[in-house]
Amino acid sequence: MSRPAGTCPQCGAKIEFKWSGALQTTCDFCQSILIRGDIDLEKVGVVADLPANASPIQLGTEGIWMNKAFYVAGRIIYEYSLGTWNEWHLVFQDGTSGWLSDAQLEWAITFPHNQSITADQAHRITIGSKFTWNNVEYEVTSRTNARYRGVEGELPFQYWDKTSVGFVDLRTQDARFATIDFSESPALIFLGQFVDFEQLRLTNLRQFEGWF
């Protein structure tokens, strides 16, 4: 598999994309946020100091989901009124990508869904609203306005300038999970499910003082 490579326009470091689908990455050395103009890299910003984070996941963590191996290629950190949460960008062995959401150690895996909702539907969302995708009924359990707090590693889109995003989380009776992401119009929908930490058979985890 060929790995696209370029040079950091800021510090000259060699930038190699581990995932060929990545549109954005961060320079490990100078923390510049770089986007691909294939394969000239353009600096569009600098990673602000990432907030202290206690997720056991880190870039390079590996795991298995539905018999497919994945590695953690990047992340977005969101900040909302009650704290932060991580969206870890997963790259699977077949080249597809998904997201591992880590909100106070509650884990959910989601994948982009090819449908959206209308502006009218979006307008009427309240706690308890119901949506059906792929014949599964999802119920709105939370609405959040989140501020984009930082990025790390490789991402499947250019995400550096989106500063405030509306999110709606939905759940089902069998622990499935969906997110409506209003960072784009029409809104993006991600479908997936809650998972137990052990289910993901993760390796390369962070370790914690006083624990392991």
Partner: peptide
């Protein structure tokens, strides 16, 4: 640090072990 958060509740020495649930 990996498994997350659980709760205990106590009322008049009656205890409950509680975990968040993902399903509605």
């Amino acid at each position: 640090p990996y498994k997350g958060f659980r709760y205990l509740s106590e009322y008049n020495n009656h205890w409950n072990y509680i975990r968040p649930i993902a399903a509605v």
